[in-house]
Design a protein around this nucleic acid. Structure first.
Lengths: 335, 335
DNA sequence: GTGAAAGCGCTAACAG
DNA sequence: CTGTTAGCGCTTTCAC
């Protein structure tokens, strides 16, 4: 590995000059610049980032903490983040934390020691402990896909409204007994997807004068099997639902199968609505009607905000609510 | 941000001693150690990784170049890699390269400048150019999910055998007209998944005395829509296939729908076999029979090999072929 | 325009 | 056991 000194020696200049060339500083004569570049190329020299980081106090790296990269919802967000960072010359350190407080805190620590310029964080519930950790360590942070009342920038969607829209659609189709499959509730903290969507669900029912029936509400785990089991539970309950709203597409996939396995048909007997609009949601049979949220954009916007924050640029808005959209396919029917 | 010096001053010791404490060197008196630790904790001091990297010539970071993290197949591999690295104290820089030579090379460059200790690489075809880049820059590299004839460690499965097994299964069920949906062929380089699986397909047919019919072979793009189109093409061809083998589950999902949309039933009229065994493959209707490959393990083993390589430990085997397994569900039927 | 020198925060001999 | 010192490779004054 050639260093700046090797280049300087062979080019008959000082290391300061080489440094100037590689930092595009103006005061270097064209001749010298050319010669330095030539020698550097010959040697295959390129500046060492760690050395640069040490002196500048910046690494050009951002940390990314997500629950689980193997989940399509997150991997799409991550895609948006990485793409956006790449464009602006940042690299991303990926951290899977499985929503475990302990792992998250450990990663925050590690990232801090690595001098990352900032981190994008995604967890089910952004707690005081999290806020404390970032604040104490003075790490710029933005939340992707999660809101918070703490003074931390975030980009997400309006989950209450999104669920509300989905249920209203079902109601507009004449459904009266609508089941709901939510995910883990995290002690009913308000800023958790499932809780917010549950609120939207109840709100819509309430406004339509429909009763909220506990038998129609079941807990899943954001996985297909969990969705399946929850759907079976709802389907086998006393009140026969004519529709089921699962707060994630993956769970909706499970629900779709549960419907069939219970000897029913979707959408003829039971309508199903999902949430997320992941790629695969259009290839189920029937194609899934779902609430689309812009995963890629959530990641991309979050990354942009973080990088602006890092570079001291002013942020117009710290709390960004992106639009969701009901994508109507063929899993719902008028009753 | 407190530095080692701050701690040294307040603890009344030299920075060398503080360094010793944080590197668990033996020759520090328990008293001193304790005092140093206490002060460090008070100050919230932890060693700076960039500084450490600079002096040690190692960063504890490994680079990870994959085509696309938002693809479930890759994200599962990545999961295995990250988990395994985490356990051994390494962090991972994630790079999406979309199989674009240019992006890959650029990332290799960046990772080199960042002094990553090694990289795990995944691309459709490992070319001379790639090999050259890693060799010239002296970056330890291991391929995950891809074989090569170059002197580079890799961990993958036997794609020829895997496809061969799948087709033989179909043949054993009495199928004679078996369609194949492959992915892009990359100029027919041998070490490409699709090419290898195509070879296995032909081999099985050949051994069974069945003819390879071009009309039964179509190209997809590893996406559901591509699989759908390819399946339609095969289904509408002159020779009516009784089975279709798609070399990825996602394409098989598309094929499943194509079958239905052509007014046929799976498995009654057409059997379908996929490849990968991603999570979702068991929730299709019918549940997909598929060739399972151990994505997580591929990543995990590749990471282990790389870290051993980095630490100069001897590698028992540089070329690891993990087992695949035919997972029989309900998408195939005897004819 | 260019060079000399002082660090960035840390580790690793080498003394004592 | 502990301190002193010389860098790791680079950027950034401050002179010339």
């Amino acid at each position: 590995m050639p260093t700046i000194e090797d280049v300087a020696r062979l080019a008959n200049v000082s290391i300061a000059t080489v440094s100037r060339v590689f930092n595009n500083k103006p005061d270097v004569s064209p001749k010298t610049r050319e010669r330095v570049l030539e020698i550097a190329k010959e040697l295959g020299y390129e500046p060492s980032m760690p050395a640069r980081s040490l002196i500048k106090g910046k690494t050009g790296i951002i940390g990314l903490i997500v629950p689980d990269i193997s989940n399509p919802y997150y991997s799409e967000i991550v895609r948006g983040i990485e793409d956006t960072c790449r464009i602006r010359g940042y690299n991303v350190i990926l951290c899977n934390a499985d929503n475990k407080r302990e792992k998250e805190l450990e990663y925050i620590d590690i990232l801090k020691n690595r001098w990352v310029d900032g981190v994008i964080f995604h967890c089910d519930y952004f707690s005081e402990e999290h806020y404390e950790a970032f604040t104490r360590k003075k790490i710029p942070v933005v939340l992707a896909g999660r809101a918070t009342s703490y003074d931390v920038p975030y980009v997400t969607i309006d989950n209450v409204k999104a669920a509300y829209d989905a249920i209203n659609y079902l109601i507009s189709l004449g459904h009266k007994r609508i089941g709901l499959i939510h995910g883990p509730l995290e002690g009913m903290k308000e800023t958790v997807d499932s809780v917010e969507r549950l609120i939207g669900y109840k709100k819509a029912l309430g406004e339509a004068g429909l009763e909220v029936c506990d038998e129609l509400i079941a807990e899943g785990d954001f996985k297909a099997k969990g969705g399946y089991k929850a759907a079976v539970k709802i389907l086998k309950a006393g009140v026969k639902p004519t529709a089921i709203f699962a707060v994630s597409d993956i769970m909706a996939f499970g629900a779709l199968n549960a419907v069939f396995d219970c000897g029913l048909k979707c959408p003829e007997d039971v309508s199903v609505v999902g949430f997320d609009n992941i790629d695969l949601s259009e290839i189920t049979r029937p194609p899934l009607t779902t609430v689309a949220q812009p995963m890629y954009e959530i990641g991309s916007v979050a990354a942009d905000i973080l990088m602006n924050l890092i570079n001291g640029e002013s942020i117009e808005r710290k709390r960004i609510i992106l639009d969701h959209k009901l994508v109507i396919r063929n899993s719902c029917k008028r009753v």
